[in-house]
């Protein structure tokens, strides 16, 4: 599959491609060494929720690593992208300031690899029940008889 085809497919599978659920299946081979650390840092920086359990980010990173590890195409793209990030200064990623991290990511945000990671990370984080808890989304209510008698119209702040 050509790179462009692959990206089109992954983007069009936006909603379906990844799930918090699937994260529990465990990833294939992770990304070793510095690249693994970098990737994990990138995942957090994309959607940094301070109050979200770090396990969620780890699960998303693990699943992402698995997907990248299974594709020579993606691995090559990752190496290119992470080279740009790593070559940004003499300090290692964890030691960069918040501002420096953002500035580094902005340099690669137009790359197909970044878009792939963004898409996958978004799905992984916002499909995750722990994120739902943080944001106040209660998800399925079918098992409780729906929202019809569970807060459908419980709003209490509207002016008269």
């Amino acid at each position: 599959m050509k790179r462009r085809d692959f990206l089109q497919l992954t983007v069009s599978l936006a909603f379906a491609s990844l799930g918090g659920r699937a994260a529990a299946d465990g990833g294939a081979a992770g990304i070793p060494g510095d690249n693994g650390e970098l990737l994990s840092g990138v995942v957090y920086q994309l959607f940094p929720h301070e109050r979200l359990d770090k396990d969620v980010y780890e699960q998303v990173t693990e699943q992402l690593s698995g997907k990248i590890g299974q594709s020579a195409e993606l691995t090559a793209m990752m190496d290119d992208a992470l080279d740009v990030l790593a070559g940004n200064g003499n300090e290692r990623w964890p030691e960069l300031t918040q501002q420096q991290k953002t500035a580094s990511l902005e340099k690669i945000q137009q790359t197909p690899f970044f878009r792939f990671v963004l898409n996958e990370t978004l799905g992984g984080i916002y499909q995750h029940p722990r994120t739902w808890e943080l944001l106040g989304f209660e998800g399925s209510s079918l098992e409780f008889g729906g929202y019809i008698n569970r807060g459908l119209d419980d709003i209490d702040w509207l002016p008269e």
């Binding site: 909603f15 929720h49 990511l105 978004l122 916002y126």
Partner: peptide, 27 residues
């Protein structure tokens, strides 16, 4: 919108601290 569809459509391609903070206003 579910949290995922909100994150996809509120600012497509959006990321970073400010965007995450905005999404925290979901409820």
């Amino acid at each position: 919108f579910t949290p995922e569809s909100m994150a996809r459509f509120l600012r497509p391609g959006g990321w970073g601290k400010e965007y995450a903070k905005l999404l925290e206003q979901y409820e």
